[in-house]
Design a binder for these strands. Structure first.
Lengths: 215, 215, 215, 215
DNA sequence: TATGAATGAGCCTTCATTCAT
DNA sequence: GATGAATGAAGGCTCATTCAT
């Protein structure tokens, strides 16, 4: 929120800036989704937002600003929805629930996540670090969740493993979106959650072990 | 290989076409890596390839053809290098080795994989299905590897789990490239292979189990 | 007039569209006259019209649109000027006057008529029929003029002859422009009108007859 | 014939030059007919002629040379076929026959005449006068035909009328081609010859006179 | 504040012509 | 003589951005 203000607007009325930028973001997301950032023109963004090209440029400085705003807004939404997780409980069950929650969010915001995922990289060297920071922030939430399990004695993995696990969870969420062409043909989000949870928790050997124990 | 021929060239000499296209691909990959497909001009591609813009267009029809050629070439290289894996052995050890092998390939071809990964989506509706097919082909290799383990009694997981696991492995390879900004700061490829293998094979509970057993 | 609107402009203000297109047409006619449609660049058209290339494309979609606009405008002008003819009188004198009138218009609009005449054929299959329709419309005016004479008993020729005669008159008008290199060397427009009228009205045998009668 | 030699060829063997140029002309005519001079590429001409682009340029110096060759060849053909007319007889009948003959030639060579007619103007200032000269040469044949009638007392029209009449006949021949979209819908070449001859010989008043006399 | 006409740099692509083999 | 790969000037068109109203 504090960040949007970093993108300069000619218009002074902050409420108006907020409102116009939201219109803009909504329009842009659906356009970027359809044709990507580069194939979308500023005119199209303005039209989709419901105002003129002149007005658009009263609220941003360059086309790239729109992308930044879009990415920022999506991160913010995901983060906000994710923030209802209890990061502190420190049980495997809460971790499982966190994953379930995140995957469902990603499923619902599929288009947005996909857009951000595919277009964020075109952000300039000035804006990219900020976006990456936000991404790490979200990965950090999973790390926290995991670390609490370790602290709680529910899990015993090294810090390195914790970090990578957090990344894996984060990427597996995005993966549901960016590999939808393959995954979503045979699999519902429920299936996906169940299967990924199985693999994450039991691992390959875990399956084997279970069987052996059971046998 | 048979595919490149589908992109029409004005020049008849196939050897020359092969040679020029390789020059073109080499140049294009490094440009796409640096600035992405859309920000790269055809003139730059020609210059990087070592010939004139006119010559470039003797070997392709549109700029998009270059991207297709690049993607196809990278897939082909990865596939070729991957083909030395023994898909039939059916032991956990061979699966582990396969992953090790694949991750090292991805590490060495990081730039290429990154490019393909980030730009493939801009391919038109005509070319995209082909690219996706090639991707599934590679995922299929991991599926095969896994399935043989199951057939061999080394692993006991459902077909759904097998498929998703193959996707996970494939994506985790790419992830080493596209999240290098986070992963490669603290982690060598050896570390990455070791850690991912641990997580894949033991799972979260597996660690716990080991500890409990050991304690 | 209604037709120009069929060529899409990005600019909404219809008055402005009208004005800019007129600038465009004026510039284009003089360029097409000098070097033909194909050898004239869109940049040259823009410059001749007094605005930038970007602005040009705010008022048309393709270069061919300019040609269409030019042709349409010329037809419209000729038609408008021709419309002062009295098509109904039905005397040989009025026919003679009509021819006189038309030939003078063509003389004054020589460059325009020449341009249209030489370049209309490059219009695409979409636009050509419209242009031909307009041409037939003008031929139709002469047919009307002739037919009234017939109806009036001033003339007694078959419908086939009427039609062809109308075409002949129309083409002889254009001919004054497109064969100016030959005709206008020795002949003023007054001469041309007189001579063509003689030939049209008396025919070859007519002369003979007159002579014989007179002798 | 002597003219073709004016267009320089690298190849010395004159027989070969003649042969290759004929191939070239044949191919070019059909291409120009289809898409016009400007939209036809030299490569297409070469291909249509049955040899390579390199070879094409062994026999011409510029693309425009091809057009010149084409125009020259067509004029030559028409002139040759026209030369069987008896220009000296000096009867109205022979004039009528001449027209008949010429119109039939134009009908048979419609495409060629159309091409030449529409594209000749793009010839450079160097080549154009030559083409116009050839055209006047042909008009001159009709003038001769007419003048002999006058000398013979079969016709009594001024020299000015004679010249214009010759032009009219010439243009009416071409008109059969370039207005085919209108004329040939309802009219065979026989009809056209008959109707035009009627109009030329009797004139408008002639019809009336005939009727009056006949009445 | 809002508008939208104007701008022009820059992009992709074509094609006449050359020249080494 | 024949070939065809190479060249690069030039053309049509787009679109981010500005600015007067």
């Amino acid at each position: 929120m504090a960040v949007k203000r970093e993108i300069q607007a000619s218009v002074k009325d902050e409420r108006l800036v907020e409102k116009r930028r939201n219109q803009m973001i909504r329009g842009a997301v659906s356009l970027f989704k359809e044709k990507g950032f580069h194939r979308t023109t500023t005119r199209e963004i303005a039209r989709a937002a419901g105002f003129s090209i002149g007005t658009l440029y009263e609220y941003i400085r360059t086309k790239e600003d729109v992308l930044f705003l879009v990415c920022d807004s999506i991160y913010e939404q995901v983060r906000k929805r994710l923030s209802s997780m209890d990061l502190e409980e420190g049980t495997l069950e809460s971790l499982k629930l966190g994953i379930d929650h995140y995957f469902r969010i990603v499923d619902e915001m599929q288009d947005e996540v996909l857009v951000m995922y595919q277009e964020a990289k075109v952000l300039s060297n000035e804006a990219l670090p900020y976006v990456l920071k936000r991404e790490l922030e979200m990965v950090g939430m999973f790390e926290k969740l995991i670390k609490r399990c370790v602290e709680n004695g529910e899990l015993e993995i090294s810090q390195e493993h914790q970090q990578l696990l957090a990344h894996n969870i984060f990427v597996q969420g995005q993966m549901w979106g960016f590999r939808r062409w393959a995954l979503q043909k045979t699999c519902s989000i429920e299936d996906y959650i169940r299967l990924q949870t199985d693999l994450l928790f039991s691992g390959i050997k875990g399956f084997k072990a279970q069987v052996e124990v059971g046998g």
